Amino acid sequence: MTPTFQHSESPDYPGRFRHLSAHWVGTLVSRALTDGSTMHQLRHLCATEIHNQTHDVRLVQTILGHASLATTQRYLAVDETKVREALTSRAKSWGTEAGRAQVEQPVP
């Protein structure tokens, strides 16, 4: 079911409708989330999901409208298990690449 919103005409501009404020949209979304989540929690979740899919912090920064990358980083939840797995996997390939490089170099 698609939600419908009733708009009222702007008294200053007949025939035009008022915009929904960010606060009102947040209130509507929070009411629609039956588990008690808030718009802010949804923002964190979306930022983390976009980062997990793209691995692009700058993209997330642009989408969220942050001027500072440090602010964006606070929005991202990083799973420590994934960090350990990534480091372990990379360390194994570093070891393999280093070993291969030593073998492939001609002896003077």
Rank of each mutant, 00 (worst) to 15 (best):
L76N: 07
H66W: 03
R31T: 01
T27V: 12
P14F: 11
P14S: 11
E85A: 05
R100E: 14
T4E: 05
H66Q: 11
Q61I: 04
L87C: 15
E80K: 03
L69E: 13
A77L: 06
G95M: 10
V60G: 06
L64F: 00
S10L: 08
Y13T: 15
L33H: 01
I50A: 05
L28C: 14
T27R: 06
V107A: 10
W24Q: 12
L20G: 04
D56L: 03
P106V: 12
S89T: 08
Q6F: 12
N52R: 15
E80S: 14
G65R: 08
A101W: 08
A101T: 07
F17I: 09
T27D: 10
L64P: 03
H66R: 03
Q6K: 12
T34K: 01
S93I: 00
G15Y: 00
P106I: 10
H66D: 12
T54S: 12
V78L: 09
D35W: 01
S30N: 04
Q73Y: 01
H44T: 02
L69H: 08
G99Y: 11
S89R: 05
V103M: 06
S10E: 11
Y13D: 14
T4I: 04
A67D: 11
D79L: 04
H7E: 09
G36P: 02
A101Q: 13
L28V: 11
M39H: 06
T72G: 09
W94R: 10
E80I: 13
L45R: 09
T38E: 02
S8E: 08
L59F: 13
E49P: 00
S10R: 09
A98K: 12
G95V: 04
A67T: 15
A70V: 14
H51E: 05
C46V: 15
R84T: 14
P11G: 07
V25E: 02
E80L: 12
D12P: 01
R74S: 13
A77N: 07
H19Q: 06
H23Y: 09
T54H: 03
S68Q: 13
V57A: 09
I50W: 00
D12T: 10
T48F: 11
P14K: 11
W24S: 14
N52C: 00
Y13N: 15
R74Q: 15
T62W: 04
V57E: 02
H40E: 11
S30K: 00
Q53A: 15
H55S: 14
L33M: 14
V57R: 02
Y75W: 08
D35M: 01
E104R: 10
R100V: 02
T2E: 09
A86P: 00
H44D: 01
R74M: 09
S37M: 07
H55C: 07
S37Y: 04
L76E: 03
E97G: 05
G95S: 13
S8Q: 10
G65A: 12
L45G: 06
